[in-house]
Write a protein that binds this DNA or RNA. Structure first.
Lengths: 214, 214
DNA sequence: CCAGAAAATCACATCGAGTGCAATTTTGCA
DNA sequence: TGCAAAATTGCACTCGATGTGATTTTCTGG
């Protein structure tokens, strides 16, 4: 009788998971730069060479969950309520993306905070993260254009998404560093930062709503 | 008799220039990845090791002009006309940044197009460029907050700059790729793309102006 | 003009990320 | 059980980047 997934596939999932867990552990303990791929591979009991057949680069292991999150964002667009406007959809995306919602909740739930922490201290990762964000925006802009073809041509849709995400990210960066940087994710500070971000997104949303009424 | 700059300084400028010119030449001919630092150094008649005492990394040689451009942007804020609003200042910045305006006009004038061309084809550079852009935004947000302390708290100022630049960059990305990607910088296409961008920035500007009137 | 200080360049040596390849082991399936 | 496909592995290699210590070049004061 066939299996949900063959043994081969299950084993691959297991090593993938082991690699991510080993990386989380090592990154937390030693930092990103001080951790070598060889160490991660050794901790997961595979050869260094095998690491690169699971992740194209060292950085990518930190972004193992972004695929699911982007899919959730895309689904928030396609599965919009009738009568919902672009601005509403964008607001719903941020809420939805920040939820767990993945198939591997507790693993990815551990991954995201580590990433945030490392991003504030490791410049090499910032470029990578921004690149992924930018590419994600591009996809969402396409989805948004297809969802509202009458209102948003491709370039305007990109401007809408870019305006929203750009404001959100820039505001988040200064809000987090202003809030002590290190432990801005502590339960207390978290709401404080969230409140600032809610005020920040008003700026792009006003512009987007002005587009709709025109 | 003392000199405008000592021989030491002049020689350094010359080597720096030679490195940039060699890099431009090689990048254009072979692409970014296929060009090694050793080749650039050899073409400029210095050792490989010396390259890294001029530029911290291979990528940085492509961004030799950004310091001047960021300074011009900052000056556009501090030297604003009385009564000028944030939205007006931002518009003036993009115009000013796109002008030559540097001390080394013709060299940097050659550098920028090469960078744009390589950015569309070399993922490794995109992350670096976005990182610089983000950092530049951070500075401008600080300047903007200081220029309009009554209207813009630090987080809102970041949202304003991020919203504007985010829309501009996202729109530029899809406009350029839609316009054939490769030669979207040809004299004919250039105006076409510029027109799309002028429409795109309306989105964030509306939101920013709404902030002012409130 | 010369000697010594300071700075720039250089030739290594080394490390880590990433790739190509060929051998070997493991898994799937008949 | 046996064969084909796929995954893993070790190895050699390239390239970017850094540390070090020797060497050369420039600057300064006498």
């Amino acid at each position: 009788m066939a299996n949900t997934y063959g043994l081969r596939e299950r084993k691959k999932q297991r090593t993938r998971r082991a690699l991510i867990e080993a990386a989380i552990e090592l990154f937390e303990r030693q930092g990103y730069d001080a951790t070598t791929v060889a160490q991660i591979a050794a901790a997961a009991d595979v050869s260094t060479r095998t690491f690169f057949s699971y992740f194209p680069a060292k950085e990518d292991i930190l972004f193992a969950d972004t695929h699911d999150r982007l899919a959730a964002a895309a689904e928030a667009i396609t599965g919009r309520a009738p009568g919902e406007r672009p601005a509403d959809v964008l607001l719903r995306i941020v809420q939805r993306v920040l939820e767990p919602g993945s198939a591997d909740v507790e693993l990815f739930g551990r991954l995201a905070p580590v990433r945030v922490r490392l991003l504030t201290t490791t410049p090499a990762l910032q470029g990578h993260a921004l690149r992924r964000l930018f590419e994600g925006q591009r996809r969402l802009a396409g989805d948004l254009h297809r969802a509202f073809p009458a209102d948003l041509d491709p370039v305007t849709a990109a401007a809408v998404v870019g305006s929203f995400m750009g404001a959100l990210m820039a505001a988040a960066a200064v809000a987090v560093t202003a809030a002590g940087g290190l432990d801005a994710l502590a339960p207390g500070r978290q709401e404080e930062v969230a409140a600032q971000l809610r005020r920040a997104v008003v700026v792009p949303l006003d512009g987007i709503r002005a587009l709709e009424t025109g």
